[in-house]
Amino acid sequence: MNVLEIKNLTKKFGDFIAVDNMSLTVAEGEIFGFLGANGAGKSTTINMIAGLLRSNDGTISILGKNNAKQSRFAKMNIGMVPQDIAIYEDMTAYENVKFFAGLYGLRGAELNERVVEALEFVGLQDKHKSYPKSFSGGMKRRLNIACAIAHRPKLIIMDEPTVGIDPQSRNYILTSVRKLNEMGCTIIYTSHYMEEVEEICSKIAIIDHGKIIAEGTKEQLKSIITNTKDVWIEVKTTEKVNLAAIQDINGVEAVSVDENFIKINSDTGVNNLNKILEHFMNSHIEIRSLQEKAPNLETVFLTLTGRNLRDQ
């Protein structure tokens, strides 16, 4: 079943069209990435899914039920990790999670159990009695996540959960996202960090100016631009290189020599790097360096929109 189904969603703020006739489905078990520059409409879309904003047009369904008509059902099944850290500084970590989980109808021993579980999940069990005032940015982000997962939602929406934190906390969060996914949660993940999205998302939508301009797995997205990658091998001398032999390796489309570089253009769908290297080894050619120039999501975004992801 599709966890999320969006049809012709539109949101306007005055003259500004933030989300423009967007349609989208997210299947169960996916980590669905929204990739886009700031102001592309990611947060607006997410806020409409979570029920924070009303749409001007279109429908959103959660687990097959219309969001507008059965908002309670939708909200019960969604865990929202907002972009800004949304916790109470004057309550302890434990109290924060407990308060928010309590809003989802959890009570008594079950509530307590879930709160402890959530805090353990984000690795804050030792700090449960501390106030967030004393927390680092990364710990606050983790608490921010804990507050959204204690009620065990089917769909977790994470809006830029790694903004402004140290690499360690970031890795921790990315690992937790994967763990949540393994536990059966479907996750919507927005970021303007291309690497993160590329790393954890099973499916990605590139959003620009309120529209989905491309959608699919990262391989599918990359193949929009090209099916080939460039492998540049720097050698000591190009004398002994047999270009024809390299050309014959499965997947190789073109080979050329540029000073000390052997530039091989090869199909991304074929794993032939081993064979290419084998060829050089067997011919006793000394390799000085090797660069692989495969398109990444950043290139995809740049090529499609003509702008960088982090442009304003």
């Binding site: 005055g14 003259d15 929009i224 631009i225 090209t226 090529t303």
Partner: peptide, 19 residues
């Protein structure tokens, strides 16, 4: 491109704040 044709018409004018 591989799966897409892209045509961009871009001017070097002032642009606008809201489209």
């Amino acid at each position: 491109l591989n799966k897409i044709i892209r045509i961009e018409v871009r001017d070097n004018g002032a642009g606008t704040d809201t489209i």
